[in-house]
Deep mutational scan, measured.
Amino acid sequence: RSTHNEMEKNRRAHLRLCLEKLKGLVPLGPESSRHTTLSLLTKAKLHIKKLE
């Protein structure tokens, strides 16, 4: 059980790190620190579409 908890903790930490990296790559506007994961991913998707 503790192994599972540790793996889950590591998974969440990795996900958080990846989202922070994404936040640095996507133009978010003036309220960049107030975005939810969903809004960050939505803006990333729109940004990628613009680049295509």
Rank of each mutant, 00 (worst) to 15 (best):
S39H: 05
L19H: 00
S2R: 02
A13C: 13
K21R: 09
L15W: 14
M7G: 14
T37P: 11
E52Y: 11
T42E: 08
T37H: 13
E8Y: 07
K9T: 07
K50D: 00
R12L: 08
G29N: 14
L22A: 02
K50T: 05
H47G: 14
K23L: 03
R1L: 00
L51G: 06
E8V: 10
T42Y: 03
V26C: 10
L15K: 01
K49E: 03
V26D: 00
L38H: 08
L25N: 00
H47Q: 15
L17Y: 07
C18H: 02
S33D: 09
E20T: 08
K50P: 04
T3G: 09
H14W: 07
N10C: 07
K50S: 03
L17I: 10
N5M: 13
T42D: 12
C18A: 08
A44R: 01
S33A: 15
L41H: 00
H4W: 10
L22S: 00
A44T: 02
L25Q: 03
L38K: 11
C18R: 00
H4E: 11
E20W: 02
R12T: 09
R12Q: 04
N10G: 11
L51K: 05
L17H: 13
L28K: 07
H35V: 09
K9S: 10
K21L: 01
L46F: 08
L28G: 10
T36S: 10
K9L: 05
R1G: 06
I48E: 04
G24A: 13
P27S: 14
A13V: 04
T36E: 06
A13L: 03
V26E: 00
L17V: 10
H14R: 09
T37Y: 12
L22I: 07
L17R: 12
E6T: 13
K23N: 00
P30C: 13
K50R: 08
L38W: 12
I48G: 03
M7S: 12
L25T: 00
E6D: 13
L22T: 00
A13P: 06
R12G: 10
K21E: 01
L51A: 03
E52H: 14
P27V: 08
P30R: 15
H47I: 15
S2V: 05
T3V: 07
L46C: 08
T37K: 15
V26L: 12
V26P: 00
E6L: 06
L15P: 03
H14I: 12
S39E: 05
L46H: 15
T36V: 13
C18N: 03
H4S: 13
G29S: 11
I48Y: 07
C18Y: 05
L38G: 12
E52R: 15
L46M: 10
K9R: 09
P27D: 08
H35Y: 09
L17M: 09
R11C: 10
H4F: 15
L22R: 00
E52D: 07
T3M: 05
K21M: 01
L41P: 01
T42Q: 14
L25K: 07
R12M: 10
T3K: 06
K9A: 05
H47W: 13
L17F: 04
R12E: 00
E6A: 08
L40K: 05
E8F: 11
V26R: 04
T36G: 14
L17T: 08
R11D: 06
K45M: 01
E20A: 12
G24H: 06
L22D: 00
N5H: 08
L38R: 09
S32N: 10
P27Y: 09
T42A: 13
M7E: 05
R11K: 14
N10L: 02
S32I: 10
K43Q: 05
L19R: 01
K21F: 04
E6M: 05
L46W: 07
K45L: 05
K9V: 06
L17G: 13
A44N: 02
N10I: 03
L46E: 10
T3S: 08
K21N: 01
S39M: 01
P30H: 13
E20N: 06
M7R: 09
T37L: 14
K23M: 05
K49G: 03
T36P: 12
L38V: 14
L41A: 03
S32H: 09
R12V: 05
L28S: 07
N5P: 15
L51P: 05
R34S: 06
